[in-house]
């Protein structure tokens, strides 16, 4: 697999990676009429260092996307506070960039014009065009620049969404299952790509994933979200440090042991000999 050189990834202008802090974050949604409100997240305490990659892992519906929306400022917590770089997160905080769980591309815009949407407001046209071309190459979609979203596959659309999130060199990059719709092989390529991007520009990344191996390949820390049987609302049940520097050997025995621990924690028998 061809590795991108760092120069190909060098951003137009460097944005420093920013620290994120979650202090007792909780979110409940109003229940159906006549029913009590439903607590989805509670007491989430997490400090993320600048440039760190954190993987959020947890069962479906436990609130991973909801937590990511709190960090992006697209949704407000019902309790607790969040800060980026020490200041309170604003509504739709522009220090973040999000790649949503669904690609959410504008159907009437071409791939290139969709990526353009991710550029900071008021970017010079020529600079913007160069940046978009660079990002297209990065996600291996140069050939698809002029196609409309309905003309590309789900995996391609997800890569466009990733490129759009990268366009602004965000201080905090929020990725919600960014490689979920990719085939196994492209998924590995994109993971390597993300590692390369991060090495060229070590921004803070919070990555939601269902894939234990993906978390182990990419993250500095893996944060497990879970719900205790005796009380409602998911919270952090465990935090694992992943040893070693990226790029990691996917077959290493240390990772295999961590994988077994994670699967156990997620309630999946790992069949791993200890």
């Amino acid at each position: 697999m061809k590795r991108m050189t760092s120069t190909a990834i060098a951003p137009a202008q460097m944005t420093p990676a920013l620290p994120v802090s979650l202090n007792g974050v909780g979110r409940s949604f109003p229940g159906a009429p006549g029913e009590p409100e439903r607590l989805v997240l509670r007491d989430v305490e997490l400090k993320i260092a600048p440039g760190e990659i954190v993987a959020l892992l947890g069962p479906s519906g436990c609130g991973k996307s909801t937590l990511l929306r709190q960090i992006s400022g697209l949704d407000r917590p019902t309790s607790g506070t969040l800060t980026i770089d020490g200041t309170r997160i604003a509504a739709a905080d522009q220090r973040c960039a999000v790649a949503f769980q669904e690609p959410r591309l504008l159907p009437w815009r071409t791939v290139a014009r969709n990526i353009e949407l991710g550029l900071p407001r008021g970017t010079d046209r020529a600079v913007g065009r160069a940046r978009v071309a660079q990002l297209l190459e990065l996600v291996q979609l140069s050939h698809a620049a002029d196609l409309k979203p309905r003309q590309i596959s789900g995996g391609m659309a997800q890569r466009v969404s990733l490129a759009r999130a990268l366009a602004r060199n965000p201080g905090v990059l929020l990725l919600d299952e960014p490689f979920g719709a990719l085939d196994a092989l492209t998924r590995l390529t994109m993971q390597d790509l993300l590692v390369d991007i991060h090495r060229a520009e070590p921004t803070t990344i919070v990555l939601v994933t269902h894939d234990v191996d993906e978390a182990l390949t990419l993250a500095d820390r893996i944060v497990l979200l879970g719900t205790r049987f005796d009380r409602p609302g998911a919270t952090i049940s465990r935090i694992l440090e992943v040893p070693g520097t990226r790029p990691r050997d996917r077959a290493s025995t240390v990772l295999a042991r961590l994988r077994a621990q994670l699967l156990d924690a997620l309630g999946v028998p790992s069949h791993h000999d200890r």
Binding site: S72, L74, A92, Q94, C96, A97, V98, F100, E102, R104, L106, W108, L117, G118, P120, R121, R164, R168
Partner: peptide, 25 residues
């Protein structure tokens, strides 16, 4: 609403949201 939210996330204000997302849609 997903598209509108995406527009908001990428820094579109009310007017820009209207011309970039809502009207074309």
């Amino acid at each position: 609403p997903h598209l509108v939210e995406a527009g908001r996330a990428f820094g579109l204000g009310r007017l820009a949201l209207l011309t970039t997302v809502q009207l074309p849609a």
